[in-house]
Design a protein around this nucleic acid. Structure first.
Lengths: 346, 346
DNA sequence: GCTTGGCACTCCGCCCGGCGGAGTGCCAGT
DNA sequence: ACTGGCACTCCGCCGGGCGGAGTGCCAAGC
């Protein structure tokens, strides 16, 4: 679209906006007559037809076949979200629902579960919430629990609220005093430290303790560093709202591929992508990384501390989705989750 | 069907079996001619037609319309699984897949995640695994971790491998000696005890400790018993394989209601039902508790110790499903999961 | 020059009738 | 008791006709 911003140009944008809104609402190609009726454009259908022809020429909308209405293209949706959409503000009822629901969460797992469910209900789409990654967290505390004479449970508590447990078998019998000393030294080295640095700091510990503790320390540290660098859990995501897919028509192009993708958590993570914690990212159709998902869009953002966020959350759905509503809901939930994680465990 | 077991009666059962097998395989009503060709019944189509008429009379099969093939009814499937089906033995490749996959699990969460995924892949259906319930487990250990001067973390480790954490704020400053004493007494009362009894035993503790410890003990015990009777987590289930629903045709009757049910974990738990740990339960169509799910069947069983199992797992799908294969897979996975939970944490 | 009403045109979706095929039920024969 | 034959039913598919929605273009008007 050219750089001029004449009155006619302005109206063309309004027409595009109207087309997107109507198409999202009705799921059917929208014609010129219906447009002028449903929106208060003060012009005749014929004028709108001219605008439509121009918009089509420029690739923003598309005609399934001659003598059918118009449908937005990915490029059209893109212009819509960039220039035309205004975030739908959350209603106060929605705000209340968010806070009461999330405030009731008792632990991290619960926060994630509730968020994903909430997000899918707010948007009536499929919602995805990534569990906080290990790598971005700091160590809050490390606990050693002797279970039996030769078995020790390690508990790693992170700033995000995540808790990891590991079992260690040791050769020699455990003295309570030794365990206490080790617990102290480990936390001196690691507590409050970002996880990568903590792992590094711990590897030097076995040489710094009393020789009698060296063997035990070595075993414990080895398991701890292993747990810290175990990115298996970084791939965990929670999904909710798959049933919302049932509302959409084109099963084979839109629903089935997405349904299959939902099983592959790695795929979902890649879809969520590296969204900053400060802005909501929208990826429309072919802009995403998977060609099979050319008919689906993603609205996502990061959550957690701004400079160093814990993970991402968002919704996925057909390109024909309510972008303003989804973006507002995603932003609201992300903010609330960030706040909860920040205050709840500090 | 009468009690006689004449030769003709025997063949009728064979015909029913063949109808079920063919219908499951092809998803289409099966006719007399196709039947005699695909299965080696040594009789003519006309004979089979007579048997079919009898089976229909007795309600085991049904004709969508005149001059169409036959389809099994729920009653027909029931007879099939009760009398006609032989468990498909797992192939050695499948056995190997099960053991290598599940042996790699590092904690309880991982066991559940891997099982549900495995089960959905083996059966190509939607798999459901209930997380171990609190109420059936015994307490292995309770740990108290002082985080700050006035904040204590309680960690509840159960026989099923489940770990629950809770935070407690206390009024007075915590002494290490007090915490150690309390830890000791709590475990004396609760370790090794079934969870309901443990909660009861703990409530008497505050009166039994030194008066100086009474207030702290009261707070800790209150949170612990609350955690023990918190059945919130008993409702947790893992689901996998929703994409397999895409294979099925009748979207509105079979797929959509099930897709919606998958979101409601309470519904899923009710579907899994109270299956014993020793036998695989099959619930066919209308036999289940929800009329909207009249077109779906459930194959489930319990896992964990025989006398006192931790939870249930199984698959759900349209009534037209491969019962022998599903039953065998469900049983195999349940056994393996039971074994892992038993040896992995004892 | 932008906008508008008019008009002819295109194309989809729907309905309808005909047709072939698959499957059945029944009956008479072995 | 089983079988081959036969007439019948009903679905699914195909092709043509039809109405409607929507378009593009053009000439007239502000």
């Amino acid at each position: 679209m050219g750089e001029e911003s004449s009155a006619g140009h302005q109206r063309r944008l309004q027409v595009l906006r109207a087309i997107v809104e109507d198409y999202v609402a009705t799921e059917e190609p929208v014609g010129s007559k219906a447009l002028v009726e449903r929106h208060g454009l003060g012009v005749s259908p014929a004028t709108v037809r001219n605008d439509m022809a121009a918009l089509e020429e420029e690739g923003y909308i598309h005609q399934p076949h001659t003598s059918a209405g118009r449908v937005p293209t990915d490029k059209g949706y893109r212009l819509f979200v960039d220039k035309l959409a205004t975030l739908k503000p959350m209603s106060s009822a929605e705000r209340r629902a968010i806070s009461t629901l999330l405030d009731g969460a008792v632990d991290l797992d619960d926060v994630v579960q509730r968020s994903v469910r909430l997000l899918s209900q707010l948007t009536r789409q499929v919602a995805i919430v990534q569990y906080p990654t290990l790598s971005r967290s700091t160590v809050r505390h490390i606990e050693l629990v002797p279970l039996t004479a030769t078995r020790l449970m390690l508990i790693l508590i992170l700033s995000s609220g995540r808790v990891e447990q590991r079992l260690v078998e040791v050769d020699s019998s455990l003295g309570e005093a030794d365990v206490s000393e080790l617990r102290l030294r480990i936390n001196q080295h690691a507590a409050g430290v970002q996880i990568a640095s903590a792992a590094a700091a711990l590897t030097e510990l076995p040489d710094a303790v009393r020789p009698e503790l060296g063997g035990l320390t070595r075993e414990v540290v080895s398991v701890l560093t292993e747990a810290m660098s175990d990115h298996r859990n970084d791939e965990r995501v929670a999904v909710s709202g798959a049933a919302n897919l049932a509302r959409y028509g084109d099963f084979d192009t839109a629903v089935r591929p997405l349904l299959e993708a939902l099983e592959e958590h790695v795929v979902l993570l890649k879809l969520l992508g590296e969204s900053g914690a400060d802005a909501v990212t929208v990826r429309i159709g072919h802009e995403g990384p998977y060609s099979e998902l050319a008919a689906t869009s993603v609205v996502a953002t990061g959550y957690g501390p701004l400079e160093n966020h814990f993970g991402s959350l968002g919704v996925v759905g057909p390109t024909r989705m309510d972008y303003p509503g989804s973006m507002a809901a995603v932003r609201a939930v992300a903010r609330y989750v960030s706040r909860i994680l920040d205050e709840g465990h500090q």
